[in-house]
Design a protein around this nucleic acid. Structure first.
Lengths: 225, 225
DNA sequence: ACCTGAACACCGTTCAAGT
DNA sequence: ACCTGAACACCGTTCAAGT
């Protein structure tokens, strides 16, 4: 039962007033769809449908799917915490922890980050604050530059592993089964360590990995080429 | 102009003798297609066409695309060098170097490895030899177990970055442009370090990353939980 | 058990045409 | 310049039917 048109006619059109397209709108609904349906939700056709148009229309605002993915990733990275205070080392860990939490906070986002490089302002801000903290900690600037790369990759990888793990109903996935079944003759060390290989809460492994990285990066001289 | 049938009739059939299907055949042609056409080449439909059948037929040997990908990855990992002799540390580096070379040796393989966990015998063999070398080096077995994970992830990530870079004609991709354009006000450290961020041959960065990882893993005590 | 053809429900991208 | 419909050339997966 449609109500009567309120007040004045809505300028020539009747429908819900379909917001105008824009890159911002495209990226926003892309992130929404990702959040709701994971990686398969982030398709040009689905974004187009959500915006009540055809897929061809999006090419005005985005040059292809890869660009959309990278824009959506950067948008999501806007939630990474600003670097707070405290000792440089705990600041580095805070940033990376927040980074991991953001990646794990939406289904498919960590996996997206693994295959897409974000180059927008939010990604740059994360890099910038990591560099600042490391350099403040007295780290050689060159090592800091290379190290940031390592840290981000590592954290992204851990986040992807972790969220793949929680996405499935079986807690540990095929790797657990494979290592558990590894024959003691062919794979003695795996056999002996198969519990260790998968042990530890995600949390404690994460903290350990960060410490190991920071330690290694700080102590390893770069080649003098 | 078909020649006359040679010798005897080829048991009831005329055509090129279409090899029988098998999981092995499916994986082999999957790896072939990947090698020739990169990641887009590795599709169930293309494998089916190459094997002169329909896509539905493959489901007898492979339960879905993900399984095919993980089988193809493991097959490719068969080329990773067996652990040679020498000091444990150089052995670790040799294995990881070979692992990276294998991943970069076929287009799309490193990217595949980033999103797919190989759990076959070849993947296990790589893990086994890394564990053996680290433990021989006196590393705490628990740290070795966690560390192997870190190393593989890191090397896979570097390989993917590197082969994405050589796959494109522009040497450095959008990250270079983004960091080069970073404003000195908003991103002072990136601005100051933007050459360092992208400097160094792949080779020297790789070696440095391995040393940093080994160093960090060896020195960082695991939490006593 | 193995294999098939046909269908289903999707994709990204392009292009000529309209405004 | 922006937007569109329709087409093109693909996908993975399922299913009823055959052998």
């Amino acid at each position: 039962m449609p109500e009567k048109a309120p007040r004045e006619a809505v300028s020539r059109r009747s429908r819900p007033a379909k917001a105008p397209l824009s890159q911002d709108a495209v990226v926003t609904t892309g992130l929404e769809l990702l959040s709701r349906h994971g990686l398969p939700g982030l398709s040009l056709r689905k974004v187009a449908t959500a915006l009540d148009t055809g897929p061809a229309s999006l090419y005005v605002y985005v040059s292809n799917l890869d660009e959309l993915r990278s824009l959506v990733l950067d948008r999501a990275l806007g939630d990474v915490a600003r670097s707070g205070g405290g000792h440089w080392r705990s600041r580095v860990k805070d940033i990376l922890r927040s980074y991991a939490e953001v990646l794990m906070g939406r289904p498919g986002l960590a996996e997206l980050a693994l295959t897409t490089m974000a180059t927008g302002p939010n990604a740059l801000r994360v890099i910038e604050s990591l560099l600042a903290a490391l350099i403040e900690g007295g780290m050689d600037p060159g090592a800091a530059a290379w190290g940031v790369d390592l840290m981000q990759l590592q954290v992204t990888g851990i986040a992807a592993e972790q969220s793949a793990r929680t996405g499935q109903e079986d807690a540990l996935g095929p790797m657990a089964r494979a290592t558990a079944a590894a024959s003691p003759q062919d794979f003695p060390h795996i056999h002996a360590l198969h519990e260790e290989l998968l042990s530890g809460s995600g949390r404690s492994r994460f903290e350990w990995a960060l410490d190991a990285l920071i330690e290694g990066i700080a102590r390893t001289p770069r080649p003098t080429s």
